[in-house]
Design a protein around this nucleic acid. Sequence first.
DNA 1: TAAGATTAGTTAAACGTTTAACCGAGGGAA
DNA 2: TTCCCTCGGTTAAACGTTTAACTAATCTTA
Lengths: 339, 339
Amino acid sequence: MNPTIKDVAQKAGVSIATVSLVINNHKRISSDTKKKVQKAIKDLNYYPSRSARDLVSKKTGNIGFILTDDHFLRTEPFYTRIFLGTEFEARDGEYYILLTTIKSDYSEKDPLPRFILDRSVDGVIVAGKIPEVLIDKLAKYNLPLIFVDYTSAKENFPVVLIDNIQGGITATNHLISYGHKNIAFIGGDINHPSINERLIGYKKALENAGINPNKKFISTTSPYPDRQNGYNSAKKIFSTQKDVTAVFACNDAMAIGVMHYLKDSGFSIPNDISIIGFDDVESDLMLDPPLTTIRVPKIELGAEALRLMINTLKYKNSNAKKILVPVELIIRKSTKSIK
Amino acid sequence: MNPTIKDVAQKAGVSIATVSLVINNHKRISSDTKKKVQKAIKDLNYYPSRSARDLVSKKTGNIGFILTDDHFLRTEPFYTRIFLGTEFEARDGEYYILLTTIKSDYSEKDPLPRFILDRSVDGVIVAGKIPEVLIDKLAKYNLPLIFVDYTSAKENFPVVLIDNIQGGITATNHLISYGHKNIAFIGGDINHPSINERLIGYKKALENAGINPNKKFISTTSPYPDRQNGYNSAKKIFSTQKDVTAVFACNDAMAIGVMHYLKDSGFSIPNDISIIGFDDVESDLMLDPPLTTIRVPKIELGAEALRLMINTLKYKNSNAKKILVPVELIIRKSTKSIK
DNA sequence: TAAGATTAGTTAAACGTTTAACCGAGGGAA
DNA sequence: TTCCCTCGGTTAAACGTTTAACTAATCTTA
């Protein structure tokens, strides 16, 4: 079997308590014994048993990560990157991430993830929009709960968010600085806070520039912000509004849909129409032209969430922090100055 | 704190051993006591402590899942679906899946995943191609190791594979049955067993039909089977070979690249050229026309791997099983009969 | 009826840690 | 010299399960 703390103690000629103190580098240990013990640990290739440790310390060493299945399976690796950021950050620490998906139409009678029921996690990170009913059920367990890229309107949880408003402003300003005035906004369900905030940023930037937002240029009726809906929304707008010269799509997926529509309709990008996206879902999309967009640091979002969780766990401070992660304008070839 | 087995025992008026026996439904318990105990468990909302259980049973209740980061972040949700299949299957059982990615250029001096080092898993599932050096390092730990969609040539591990040869035959037969004779094969690195096997199937089907495989119709020099390389390979073949009427791409990503090239070059699909892919990565790709392909049951692959792992863990039978998962022809609009 | 077998449940040890309480040695102050 | 403090380490209890070994009661069987 694997070596235990006992073997180490024996080999180093000390008690098991001493070994334990060395491992958790307690100060009450001389550097001599410390070295001896560390040598023994190395020689035996000893690793503490997690279950024994967890049992006595009443921790599990796991963090749950909840995602809806459609978010997990999205074509563009957005939430998967957020997850990866969490996993990267956990990797060097002492936590493991337990990922589970839930159905996006989770309802009252669906069971909670097993890791909640059998208390296999010390806290839960929720990424993306999930049904309110699940939030309610989760809140009943007094587990630390942290949200990423979404949060409940009703309750006040610690959360890591994209600075969407600033991103919306930056994107719109970029188009304005290129001389565009008639800028369309193509978004999905306005009830999703991220999309709404990007729209707010869009409007703010227009107002700052003295441009009156035109309702006919704004599409927010699509249920889900994917390519197909980007295509459809573009169709609706461009078939009636002839003087639009630029599009701000609420994410890259919709932007790609818009590009498809424009190509199909004989428009040239960026000569006829400039287009900017949001998210920067890096992938071999073979887009032509490459899409100007607002980069969201997805890995960073996930890492930030885990750090927040670890802090919450460590200091039990439950004052609900909000962390706004900044975004960045990435200029490629899909936008063009018309001055 | 959470209720323990002690609380349940007290409430039910039995010993803790009895409670334990009920939980693991041992036969030596009358149905009367069983009911009493189960009621107490329900009343107290009791769940056994995993760490205590693991400590005594010397299990961890976790299965590691290793994936290279580029596989995890692929545009098409292929390996993520395999993972999900594993997670689905684990969900109702008693295992948790610990997912970790490794760099695709993992080298000798990179550390092993932490869950291996500190023995936090009972077994490891490896999905997709990983560097041989990692396999060697993993093999040193005597942990059950199961491969999915890849396996080491050197050693004999239990493995769950796609029936690629049959898939290659089915795909090619489909084209042959539509009257095609000059069928191109567009693949990536031939060292990847899956791709090689699909090519073998292609050749077999041609031979069965009395058609001599033409080397000029076969491209296997791309390093990675993605869209861009599909595009490039198509360019190479179609710029010299004028009588090709159909393409069998080794996966959907390359097929999409091929479609892009054909469109850019003014070909009509399927009127001028028929094309079939492999994998069936369902997604909102807005492909026009929809791609005929060979469906790989990805969820099923993952689930099968977990079942194999659980069996290995349960019966310690280490005879390296090989499971071939069948595939299915999905006819859409990208192939057309030319008879 | 007595001995053995079966049934249903209990006792207690064990798993591998952490950590509060304890202890002995040496040094300094009164 | 005596008392107290500090330093560096040890002892032992506790965490919540599983399970081998045991026991008491009932049932069979000759």
